[in-house]
Design a protein around this nucleic acid. Sequence first.
DNA 1: GCGACAG
DNA 2: ATCTTGTCGC
Length: 234
Amino acid sequence: MMPALHPHDWNVTPQEAVAIQERMRHLVETADRLPQIYRVAGVDACFDADSQIVRAAAIVLSFPDLKLMDHAVAQRAVKFPYVSGLFAFRELPAVLDALGRLHKSPDIIICDGHGIAHPRRFGIASHLGVLLGQPTIGVGKTLLVGHHIELPREKGSWVSLDDGNEVIGAVLRTQTGVKPVYVSIGHRIALQTAVRLVLACTTRYRLPETTREAHRLASGKPRLYSLDPPPSNG
DNA sequence: GCGACAG
DNA sequence: ATCTTGTCGC
């Protein structure tokens, strides 16, 4: 897809990884700096404990109609340990490989995992965005850091995710009565824009179609019907 | 000391 | 990440 704008060594210790995050966190841009969005990518990764291999998937959907335009997978043996806050050092190398195998380049990438809603404000989505110099959004399924007030039950409602005095993300209800997701700036996008885009990529499930499709590809499961919303039964 | 801790 | 059935509700 595109060479890394800010390459760095991946063969590092967790201590060195933290230092890299501290050094790169200042490169994150939190205002909109996007092109017209015609294509949205989703990336996800799965880990196989037996083989110690990470398989990453990247998919590209047209926007706003969300039709599958491109997809790619990549595998890598990983030795970096699982450490909360250091996901990028396990998953990103494979994710970069998968993105590099795409033929259609996306205008923005939605990542599984947080952006700046991270202890050092440099989660995997921000890391990917800064590396590539591309807009990214973080969508986490569980909270890593931050607090928030009660969230209304209705789809589309959201409240800020705060850490001290900082707003680090949004708690977003993507479906009425369903557990929310945590949206945060990855790179080159404002929070409100990110929330709107995530909602625009969400059809009838909790997670945006980008994440769902990438996850399905990474986990090797076949698609049952089509990219269109399947029937409610069977 | 205790709880929390993305995938 | 993954282990895992039935069940409740639209």
